[in-house]
């Protein structure tokens, strides 16, 4: 009996050892101007400090051109770039960039005001004046750990909690923040509301964080169906 269990354990290990390369079942060809051999650019200067390994693919394959937002300049931030892309409407990225810039400006002004109004040095220590840090904090606070998926078992639809992949986490956090920022009165500008929401989310408050908590609650309520995932 013990031998059989051991065998089974080895078989399970074998399954984990064998890594298979994932290939998509359906590849959209009409958008792919680049041949599949082209690789994504490594456009940050700091990532190219060390010379490439002999077995590095990038050494032998052509590289795609860097897009117009990918630069090695200090102003570049991958998360902010993603946020701008999600915020873009009607292909007007310029407008989205303007909104984000103004939002950061607002955050800076609000925080600086707080900083100067603070009475003691101790209070000042706890006031974060960097809008970028606040933005990152807001995003991490809004990231959900679980989400729900509908699964049909025995003719009944169940809401099944499933773990979230990092990309989806980021996307979800950003959309919630943007929804919170755009849900406003007519006479309020987006950058004012968005700055307010980001500041709130950085403090673990506000609409974006509440959305996350609601989702977590839903997952908690449906934890009994978690095994339907398989």
């Amino acid at each position: 009996m013990a031998g059989a269990v051991e065998q089974l354990g080895k078989c399970m290990r074998c399954m984990s050892v064998c890594k298979r390369t994932w290939t998509p079942a359906f590849i959209q060809t009409r958008t792919a101007i680049y041949q599949p051999i082209y690789l994504e650019p490594t456009f940050r200067k700091e990532d190219l400090q060390q010379p490439l390994d002999e077995l590095d693919k990038r050494k032998y394959q052509p590289i795609k051109a860097a897009t117009n937002e990918q630069t090695s300049l200090a102003s570049y931030d991958a998360v902010v770039a993603k946020f701008i892309r999600i915020l873009t409407k009607e292909g007007n990225k310029k407008r989205a960039r303007k909104i984000v810039d103004k939002t950061f400006e607002n955050i800076k002004l609000i925080q600086l005001e707080k900083y100067h109004k603070a009475a003691t040095e101790e209070e000042r220590q706890y006031i974060e004046c960097d809008p970028l840090t606040i933005f990152h904090q807001a995003i991490t606070n809004c990231k959900p750990l679980l989400t729900t998926q509908k699964v049909k078992r025995g003719g009944v639809m169940y809401t099944v909690p499933i773990p979230v992949k990092p990309n989806y986490q980021m996307y979800k956090a950003m959309t919630w923040l943007i929804d919170a920022g755009t849900d406003k009165e007519r006479d309020i500008r987006v950058w004012d509301k968005l700055a307010y929401e980001l500041l709130n989310a950085a403090q673990n408050e506000g609409k974006g964080v509440r959305k996350k908590q609601e989702l977590h609650k839903l997952c908690e309520a449906n934890r009994a169906y978690a095994h339907f995932r398989w």
């Binding site: 101007i33 082209y38 456009f43 200067k45 990038r58 590289i63 795609k64 860097a66 897009t67």
Partner: peptide, 9 residues
Amino acid sequence: LAGLLTQDP
């Protein structure tokens, strides 16, 4: 490697 020498097609 930074994608500067590829013409964007």
